[in-house]
Design a protein around this nucleic acid. Structure first.
Length: 463
RNA sequence: GGCCGGUUGGCAGAGUGGCUAUGCAGAGGACUGCAAAUCCUUGUACAUCGGUUCAACUCCGGUACCGGCCUCCA
């Protein structure tokens, strides 16, 4: 079944045709591990995960690579300002190496809780210094660089197609009005290798043919991508904010190194915004972590469900109320699947079931329309399919949704609660409604809910 | 200022040139000792003004408002 996706390069939906039909190569820009990754940051990784899962669902073998920026790059894109990692290191009083480890660990913990599959290859920049030096050397050989007193720069004027991804107005940008250019020839030029300051010993610095220093930010992704996936990469994902600078520069570097286009499809996710329409800022990021919501009693997968219920190219609103709504919807959906499992253990892949599954695939493969896919999935659960056919659909769609549908959550009910519940059952059998209601209140006060069913009762943790 | 994108029922959010989105919340009913859960029923949304059309929320153009990027950023 064919997959179509929206390519930022052409600004339209295109049929997905990989370079090599047997293996899809996909690259995702990873986090900079100098600070927490809040739920807004996680949005991009949930989507990257859905993209790769969807492609696997469409029977492609997917080779997914993600970068990890653990080398300090500078606070500003125009290569000035402080170094983020060094700054973070001072803030926390630990080495940059420990800082990187701390936030990388946190990142992978959070992605795991959201059922994001860890890409088989993750490239920390500090492990790929030689590759980055080689990439800069290649650019130098091909005549795309120049040297200033503080580093080696990419000469964007050498690339006639520079800025095509973002449809940048180069004339306007290159004029260099109020922008601090230092020794750069054009505003769109950027550092490939920065020299360490003469009077300062950096915690992270390496030898290079041009002198001791460290690699620029943009060269990371190009060199990871080229060294792990080769010169022909099918898909590159990232946030829309990367279009004008980071990805624009990646494209220019790739072209300068290989002499041809490397990435075929660029996929960009939008942002989540708060209910008032504004972005989550970096400074409040530590209050908007996945684990903050887990502490408040939310299932991280409720956030995943919320994300799936909207389109990746549109802004998604986020608030605690919306998360609560998503959690309720997910719980009920899950209940429904658990009911099915009570009825049967079997999973039958019949033509009827496959036909329904194909309906889901059609919308999912049309630019990753997960919201529509969930709706069709719900329709299938309400259809005339048998329970075991429905379970087949559940099993299949959850390969992409990854919402742990039908996973029983075992909770331990304390003995005293069980005793109260038994007492209440007796009271009910004796039609002592006053005592029964009193016991129910007592159980509620202790943090549990009780509901009567035909065979007796059910206890759950109170929400 | 430049470049993008958006405006759908109480909330969130898909989608479509003519036909129910869906979810959450709400209302009514069934069931229940009462609840809970579940089931059934229910709500004539598509910013605005023009145009194209037999027919537009859906296509085209103008207007208003909102947001993003241009500065670290998913």
């Amino acid at each position: 079944m064919k997959v179509t996706l929206y390519n930022t390069l052409s600004r339209q939906k295109e049929e997905f045709i990989p370079y090599d039909k047997n293996e899809v190569k996909m690259y995702t820009c990873g986090p900079t591990v100098y600070w927490y990754q809040h739920i807004g940051n996680m949005f991009a990784y949930v989507w990257a995960d859905i993209f790769q899962r969807t492609l696997k669902f469409a029977d492609y073998n997917v080779k997914h690579v993600m970068g990890l920026t653990d080398v300090g790059h500078l606070v500003s894109d125009d290569d000035s300002g402080e170094d983020k990692m060094e700054k973070g290191s001072r803030r926390e009083g630990i080495s940059v190496w420990d800082l990187a480890k701390k936030y990388a660990d946190q990142f992978f913990k959070d992605t795991a809780s959201l059922n994001i599959q860890r890409p088989p290859t993750v490239c920390p920049a500090t492990h790929y210094i030689q590759e980055q030096i080689d990439a800069v050397k290649k650019l130098e050989e091909n005549g795309f660089t120049y040297q200033t007193s503080d580093g080696i720069y990419f000469d964007s004027s050498k690339d006639p197609t520079y800025g095509e991804l973002a449809k940048l107005d180069i004339e306007g940008l290159c004029a260099g009005e109020r922008v601090e250019m230092a020794e750069k020839r054009c505003k769109t030029d950027f550092a490939l290798w920065k020299f360490s300051p003469k009077d300062e010993k950096r915690q992270m610095e390496w030898d290079s043919p041009w002198g001791v220093g460290f690699p620029g930010w943009h060269i990371e992704c190009s060199s990871f991508c080229l060294s792990t996936l080769g010169e022909y990469v099918d898909i590159h994902t990232g946030g829309i904010d990367h279009i004008p600078v980071h990805h624009t520069n990646e494209i220019a570097q790739n072209k300068g190194i290989t002499g041809h286009r490397v990435v075929k499809y660029w996929i960009h996710n939008n942002f989540i915004v708060k209910a008032d329409g504004t972005k989550i800022s970096k400074s409040e990021g530590d209050k908007m972590l996945v684990e903050n919501f887990v502490e408040k009693g939310y299932n991280p997968l409720a956030y995943r469900y919320l994300i799936l219920s909207a389109h990746y190219r549109k802004q998604m609103k986020f608030s605690e109320d919306l998360l609560k709504m998503a959690q309720t919807a997910l719980e009920r959906l899950n209940e429904k699947v658990l009911e099915l499992k009570k009825e049967t253990q079997e999973i039958s892949e019949t033509t009827h079931a496959v036909a329904w599954l194909n309906k889901i695939k059609v919308v999912l493969f049309d630019d990753f329309n997960t919201a529509q896919a969930i709706t069709v999935f719900r329709d299938s659960l309400n259809s005339d399919l048998t329970d075991s056919e429905k379970l087949y659909i559940v099993q299949e769609v959850d390969r992409v949704f990854a919402l742990d549908l039908g996973k029983e959550i075992q909770i331990l009910i304390p003995e005293n609660i069980k005793e109260l519940a038994e007492k209440r059952l007796h009271a009910r059998q004796n039609k002592d409604w006053a005592e029964s209601d009193r016991l129910r209140d007592e159980i509620e006060t202790l943090g549990y809910s009780i509901k009567d069913i035909s065979e007796g009762y059910e206890i759950t943790e109170k929400k």
